[in-house]
């Protein structure tokens, strides 16, 4: 009798409860897996970008188990993703057409201001030129680093391909260049 009752309890009560519980945990687990995978992509800009992008995509996958399967898909492709990112950030942006295609207008605005400061520049100086906080510039800087326009150099940043900096500099009207230069010097 005891065996039958236990079997009944296991199949009619415990098992359905476990299945329901597992189903409820799936979306949470999937999001955790995707965030973990994104955090292991290598460079901070990519970690931030893909974490948001992948979670947005994951939220649209219908079904709890399907969501978990999708999360394992991101995890399985982590090595390939890391390789692609390394390839992308290891390739300096060398053409104006490439730059304009790969960047948004706000990023180019930040890059133009950086071009005023020279091939190498300090981030606080860039913030002064733009009259913005350093923290506000980080998304644009990270994007420019991720696509190979800027790289770290000592305590500052450097244009990886000086002709790109020159092209950005040439885009700025001469009076603006002079005025901004003086403004930067006076506020130092």
């Amino acid at each position: 009798m005891n065996g039958d009752v236990l079997l009944f309890l296991a199949t009619a009560v415990v098992l359905p409860l476990l299945v329901t519980e597992f189903g409820d945990w799936c979306p949470w687990l999937a999001a955790r897996l995707v965030r973990w995978a994104a955090r292991h992509l290598g460079d901070p800009a990519s970690c931030e970008r893909y974490q948001e992008e992948w979670i947005a995509n994951l939220n649209e996958v219908p079904g709890k188990l399907a969501r978990l399967a999708a999360a394992f898909g991101y995890l399985a492709n982590l090595p390939r993703m890391r390789l692609s990112i390394r390839h992308r950030s290891g390739t300096p942006m060398t053409t104006w057409a490439g730059l304009t295609a790969a960047t948004t207008a706000p990023v180019r605005e930040v890059l133009r201001a950086a071009a005023l400061l020279g091939v190498e520049f300090a981030v606080p100086d860039l913030a002064t030129v733009l009259n913005r906080r350093v923290a506000d510039l980080l998304p644009a800087i990270n994007e420019a680093r991720a696509i190979g326009v800027l790289a770290e150099s000592g305590n500052g940043l450097v244009f990886r391909h000086p002709p790109i900096r020159a092209a950005l500099y040439d885009e700025i009207p001469a009076p603006v260049r002079t005025a901004t230069r003086w403004g930067t010097i006076l506020t130092r």
Binding site: W54, F72, Y74, R80, S89, A97, I147
Partner: peptide, 19 residues
């Protein structure tokens, strides 16, 4: 699979084919 297209998109983006 969704996870498999992102390495491709990243690679294409790095080559300037995709924005």
């Amino acid at each position: 699979p969704t996870g498999s297209v992102f390495p491709i998109l990243t690679k294409l983006e790095g080559c300037g084919w995709v924005v």
